[in-house]
Amino acid sequence: MNPELKAPSLARRMACWLYEGMLMFGVVFIAGYLFGTLSQTRNAMDNRHALQAFLFVVFGIYFVWLWAKGQTLAMKTWDIRVVDRSGQPITQARALLRYVLSWLWFLPALAAVSPFNLSGAESVVIILGWVAIWAVLSRFHPQQQFWHDALAGTRLISAPRVSRKTS
C-alpha cells in the first residue's frame, strides 16, 4: 500500500470528528435562524420535521461542497484529507454518497432508541456508545478506514500542511 494513503490514527480522526461537531453548532445556528425567519416559526416545536429536513440538506451542502474540495475546516486543522481509493480528489457525487453513508454514525442508534420511551440521558449514552463502536470497527478494516468510507469508495489520509516560504 502506498504510504501516502495511510489513514491517520483513530485518535486524530476522532479529535477531528469532535471538532467538526463543534463547528456544526455555527452551521446549525445560522441555518436554524434562516429557517425560522423564512418560515415565520414562533415555537421550536412547530415545523420540527421541516427544520430537521432543512438541516439535513444544509449539512449535505456543507459537507459535499467541502469534501469535493478535499477538506472541511476541521480536517484542515487536523491535517486530514478525503480522497478516493486511488488517492485522487473525490467528485461531488462521491462526496454525496459519503455524506449519506456517514449517517451510519447515528442512524442505527437512533433507530434503536426510537421505539422506547427513554430519557434524554439514556438516549445519549446509547448514541455515544454506538459512535464509539462504529469508530472502533475501523480497526477491523484492512487499511484502518471507517466503514462508511470503504462503502463510499473514499478514504481519509494524512495531509501535512505545506509550509510557505516567506521572502
Rank of each mutant, 00 (worst) to 15 (best):
R85N: 14
A93M: 12
P108Q: 01
A74L: 07
V58C: 09
S114F: 04
I30D: 15
A93F: 05
V58D: 04
A31N: 04
F59Y: 06
L73K: 09
K76E: 13
I30P: 04
V27K: 02
L23P: 09
E4S: 15
A15G: 08
F63Q: 03
L110K: 03
Y19T: 02
W67D: 02
K76C: 13
S114P: 14
G70F: 01
F54S: 02
Q71H: 05
Y62G: 10
S9M: 00
P8W: 13
L18M: 09
W65K: 03
Q40R: 10
Q92T: 11
P115S: 12
L23I: 09
V58M: 11
D79T: 06
A111V: 06
C16V: 10
W67Q: 02
A111D: 07
V100P: 01
L38H: 08
A7F: 02
G60W: 04
S86Y: 06
I30V: 12
L110V: 06
C16H: 07
R48W: 07
C16P: 05
F35G: 06
A95F: 08
L66G: 09
M22Q: 09
V27M: 06
V113N: 00
Y99A: 02
L110Y: 05
A50M: 15
L96F: 09
R98N: 02
V113E: 08
F29L: 14
V28E: 11
G21N: 11
R81E: 14
L38G: 09
M75F: 08
F106H: 08
A53R: 06
M14Q: 12
A74G: 08
D46K: 04
D84L: 03
Y19F: 10
F116A: 12
W17E: 08
L118C: 15
A68H: 07
T37W: 10
F54V: 03
Y33C: 04
P115W: 00
T72L: 00
R98L: 08
V82I: 08
A11Q: 14
M22I: 07
M22N: 02
F54C: 04
D46I: 01
I80N: 02
L5M: 10
M22L: 15
G36Y: 12
A93V: 06
D79P: 11
F106W: 02
L38C: 13
V57K: 02
M14A: 13
R94Y: 01
L110M: 14
K69V: 11
D79H: 12
W67F: 04
S86T: 14
L107N: 07
F25W: 12
V58G: 07
L23H: 11
R94L: 01
I61G: 15
A68M: 07
A7V: 02
M22G: 10
M24D: 14
I30Y: 10
W78G: 10
F116C: 06
V82Q: 02
V28A: 10
E4K: 13
L104E: 11
A53K: 07
S39I: 00
G60V: 03
Y33R: 11
M14P: 06
I80Y: 03
K69D: 11
T37F: 13
A112K: 04
T37K: 10
L101F: 05
S39R: 05
V57T: 04
N43E: 11
S39W: 08
L55K: 06
L23D: 15
F25T: 13
C16S: 07
W105G: 10
L118N: 10
K69H: 14
V113F: 01
V100R: 03
V58H: 04
R42F: 05
H49A: 15
L96W: 03
F116D: 15
V64N: 13
F63Y: 05
K76T: 02
R85W: 11
